[in-house]
Amino acid sequence: MRILVTVKHTPDLQSQRSFTDGTVTRTADDGTMNELDENAVEAALQIVEAAGEGEVVALTVGGPDAVAAVRKALQLGAHKGVHVSDEAIAGSDVFGTATVIAAAVRKVAEEQQVDLVITGMAALDGLTSMLPTALAAELDWSQLTLASALTVGDGEATIERHLPDAHETVSAPLPAVVSVTDEANKPRYPNFKLIMAARKAEIPVWTLADLGVDASAVGASASRTTVVDASERPPRENRVTVTDTGDAGTQLADFLIEKGLA
């Protein structure tokens, strides 16, 4: 069983973020691996551990800092890492990103077949959740998304999907793209030995040329959308805080009534 896990370098949710020229500004010490990708790494490790054989490859696409996400995956137990980096990728939309990741998956598969790609349910910075579907379409593989449970066997993967109207069980033949939710498992903590090993691990950097992807097919110029304006939302004005000394419930009710909300 060979599993590729996509990991994204995202800004720390607690830190200040901003836009420059329509794209997210990132600083070197800002951010690590998208929290929800920890569930993807965990799901992959559990499958390989249960099978008693296999390999987990962590892949990230992004600028020089993005390698931090791969190292984080290695700390958790991924066996290998790959970093795809090329200035021409900057500003790609989800379809451009899927093109790049699909090409990287094919390249990883050149040395040995890849059975599964596992992703997180969303990146907590962008949160569109569109990438797993776009990637499945691009690879023309089975799509098993939003899995809160995942089992693999007999050349097939089966997931449970908790949708608002129904709980689905869906099966599909491998190879498949699977996205897992934060309900799927409880990510492990990195162990010391792996932390040390991850620090020293050699992580190959692949460019678009290495992947055989035409630069004009990705990046800002190929993007179907453009951010034309971005501004930080101003803090709420006229905020009121009251400390309950016996009548705060009444004050709260009066506030709601005055606002026409109660």
Partner: peptide, 29 residues
């Protein structure tokens, strides 16, 4: 807890117990 981050984004925040505040608000409305 007056230091809870939820206060930073609340138009109207009450520092108090929900078990005291909600029944009184319901009664008033």
């Amino acid at each position: 807890d007056p230091d809870a981050p939820i206060f930073e984004i609340s138009d109207f925040g009450v520092v108090g117990s929900l078990f005291d505040v909600i029944p009184q608000a319901i009664e008033r409305i």
